[in-house]
């Protein structure tokens, strides 16, 4: 295909239109460019963190420093760099750090889910990965409607289901007739 160079007159017209148009496009919409996003409350997060720590936060998964979602606590990464993994109980600072990491994942999606009181929570990556609705190497760690899933999704509604969080249990389940 052969391209023709625009004539000088045509180029002149383009510059006349383009100049003001670009100036408008680049002008700030307001003095404050920040966007306010909603996130579920930290105050309600401790019970949720406890569920995530055991299910997702081991050293070989999200308790490792190289992960986008980092879960701090006794079973994985320690926040202060001094406590030993597997040692003392999870601290409030570690729950803070986990909260920061969790709400930092797809914050715009989380904001919409939070604003809509947890509706269609599977839009948010933590739920979709946890339920294995999208590729997740760890598989389904939060089966839909399980106590762990209810615990996490209730947090998105603004009213954590503490009973579901407390009811969550994640451990070995032997086959019928077998002991562990």
């Amino acid at each position: 295909m052969q391209l023709r160079a625009p004539s000088l007159a045509r180029a002149h017209v383009s510059v006349l239109w383009l100049g003001p148009a670009l100036a408008c496009a680049c002008a700030p919409a307001s003095d404050d460019p920040s966007v306010t996003l909603r996130s579920p409350l930290r105050a309600d997060f401790s019970a949720v963190s406890a569920v995530l720590e055991l299910r997702c936060g081991t050293l070989d998964c999200h308790g490792a420093p190289a992960r986008n979602l980092r879960i701090f606590g006794v079973y994985g990464l320690r926040e202060n760099g001094l406590d030993v993994s597997g040692g003392s109980a999870t601290t409030e600072l570690e729950v803070d750090a986990t909260y920061d990491s969790v709400v930092g994942l797809e914050p715009e999606v989380l904001s919409r889910v939070t604003a809509q009181k947890g509706a269609s929570a599977a839009r948010w990556i933590v739920i979709s990965k946890g339920r294995n609705l999208e590729a997740h190497r760890g598989g389904a760690r939060l089966t839909e409607n399980s106590p762990a899933d209810i615990c996490l999704t209730s947090w998105l509604t603004g009213a954590v289901d503490s009973a579901a969080c407390a009811a969550d249990s994640f451990g070995p389940v032997p086959l019928a007739g077998e002991a562990w």
Partner: peptide, 14 residues
């Protein structure tokens, strides 16, 4: 030993 490496630390159980 992937998680239980020595020495025990903030990112290893020992």
């Amino acid at each position: 030993a992937g998680c239980h490496a020595d020495p025990a630390s903030a990112s290893s159980v020992g």
